[in-house]
Amino acid sequence: MNKKSSAMGAIQKKKEKTSIWVHLFFIIFAIICIVPFVTVISASFSNESDLAMYGFSVLPKKVDLTAYAYLFKNPKMIVDAYIVTIIITAVGTFLGVLFMSMAAYCLARSNFRYTRALTFFIFFPTLFSGGMVPSYIINTQYLHLTDTLLALILPTLINVFHIIMLRTFFKQLPESLFEAAKVDGASEYYIFFKIALPLSKPVIATVAFLGALTKWNEWYNAMLYIREDSLVPLQYMLQRMMMNIQTLLDSMQYAPGMVDITSLPGENLRMAMLVVAIGPMMLFFPFFQKYFTRGMTVGAVKG
């Protein structure tokens, strides 16, 4: 499909140009996409009294670094959150990709006897789920995951749709490769790690990226299972702060009454926190866009 479409693109390029209206549409849409980000950044660089007086704006009235000074004067909370997030993203993505690709390989191998049973076992949870309450009871009362990083890693490790993507890819690898290796006496582990995996880099990268994104954005399980401040990941930290700015001020041991009440950081601190929490990711993730788009289209369009 790719080759064909790029060839078509070459023909089209000669014949027609993109209409100005189309560009206009996307420019307006781009503004709608970007303006909220700019507003958040502007608010983080604003003085709290300016915000109270004039409200949020696309450009700050005057650039003021109070909020960032607060953040970096007592960075423990944000540093902890970054560490937690990086750990759960790295460990979760690595183990997830490893476990899911092994299971997918298993489903893709023609000499595996229990393909149907295993496929059903893996697929059924997408049709029927126990839901939040039983999971919560089991994870807290039986597995004692409260206030452990495992609570943020284990429950979301396996994504059934990613297994299906991996399996579809493994199935397209030439069977003769596996058979030749078998004749040479290779074990299934050897074939998986030395033959199947190296040939599957595109799909592995896609699954790894999608997995990393969900783990980076993890807040749900943290909300259910994390009470300990040092184990809070970034997104949950942001959520707690949205619900209650006092949480943030308390954790920074801010002593009220020391400064003019209007310059007490509030909204600007909140927004600065958001910038520090999502900024690096927003700069970094667009480079992986192709994995995102690939993840959306794999299997759906058999072009």
Binding site: M102, A103, C106, N111, L118, I122, E188, F192
Partner: peptide, 9 residues
């Protein structure tokens, strides 16, 4: 061997 690979999942 294959089953053991699927075991974690």
């Amino acid at each position: 061997q294959l089953l053991s690979m699927a075991l974690p999942t």
